[in-house]
């Protein structure tokens, strides 16, 4: 654990996340047969938002969003990027699972103070979606932790480096497939974009965010993308020995996510929950049973 790593890893996550936001808009545009915005467009947007004079609905409104990004930064410190893992030894996967709560919780509290019914609906949907994918995700993580007999994420990465990727290990194939199936829900991309739903509930929790708050929410979104995918890469695609290779893997998974985002319409909340409690949950459950039996 070095000080330089502590500074480096959130910075990397931020840069990669913002780059991904730009890339996703570009790729989406190309899929739509458009030219698309410059790849730096998210940076321009964020600068513009910072310059705008927004409104605040109270102290919790200000604090919640800050707390949310702070939570994301903390998660980033716990997730190994290649060999950079400043705090991974302070609690392992269980802590990551729990700190990942802080970001949505912060946004939920912040937008809750705004007294806009749209944001309440958005939060309710977000929490429901979380419950839906968490069912499978917990089974998947438990299968991993049971298989490797550790709750430390660095250990899991190290063990994969020695052998094969978790995705190709016999008992973990099914959880791996289940994880891929719920990954869009974790990232909140299109078939599961129910909590934002710009056309329907005016971007849900972010409905009252403008100016600085919106910029912070954008940054939080960037972090969330990197966190969601990095966790998958670390747990199932073997992590990586160096940064470049790690982010290459992350990039590939992300592009896959954009493709899904580009072609799917949005599900209704009930449909999303039904889907999440269906095939992915079954596969993950089967995977855990097999892992325990072997």
């Amino acid at each position: 654990m070095h000080i330089s790593e502590i500074i480096l890893s959130p910075l990397l996550a931020l840069i990669v996340g913002v780059f991904f936001l730009g890339l996703s808009r570009k790729i989406m545009a190309r899929i739509h047969w458009r030219y698309g915005p410059p790849i730096t467009q998210p940076v321009i947007d964020i600068i513009r938002m910072f310059s705008q004079k927004s409104v605040s609905h109270g102290n919790l409104f200000n604090f919640g969003i800050i707390f949310s990004i702070a939570g994301s930064i903390a998660v980033v410190l716990f997730i190994p990027f290649g060999r950079i893992h400043p705090l991974s030894n302070s609690g392992g996967l269980l802590v990551i699972l729990y700190i990942m709560l802080l970001a949505p919780l912060g946004i939920a509290l912040s937008s809750g103070e705004a007294a806009n019914p749209n944001s309440s609906i958005g939060i309710s949907r977000k929490l429901l979606l979380t419950l839906g994918y968490e069912f499978s995700l917990l089974l998947i993580l438990l299968a991993l932790m049971t298989h490797y007999r550790t709750i430390s994420i660095t250990e899991i990465v190290a063990l994969q480096q020695k052998g094969s990727w978790s995705l190709f290990r016999l008992p973990l194939v099914l959880p791996g497939i289940a994880y891929i199936l719920i990954l869009p829900a974790i990232l909140g991309v299109r078939p599961f974009e129910i909590s934002k739903a710009p056309q329907e509930i005016s971007s849900g929790p972010m409905v009252e965010y403008g100016g600085t708050y919106l910029a912070l929410a954008k940054i939080e979104h960037a972090f969330a993308i990197v966190i969601g995918i990095s966790l998958f890469v670390n747990l199932f695609l073997g992590g990586a020995n160096n940064l470049a290779f790690f982010f290459l893997k992350v990039l590939l998974v992300f592009i896959l996510g954009i493709f899904i985002n580009a072609v799917f319409p949005r599900l209704r909340t009930e449909q999303a929950i039904k889907y999440l409690f269906g095939i992915p949950a079954f596969l993950a459950f089967l995977g855990l049973v097999i892992t325990v039996l072997i």
Binding site: R25, A29, R34, G36, P37, V55, P198, Q199, S203, G210
Partner: peptide
């Protein structure tokens, strides 16, 4: 804003709420 003229290449996109727009 869609494929034919693609306003997004100028950075013009529809925003969901006036709070996010300029």
């Amino acid at each position: 804003i869609t494929t034919r003229w693609d306003a997004e290449r100028f950075g013009v996109t529809p925003a969901a709420t006036p709070r996010q727009a300029n």
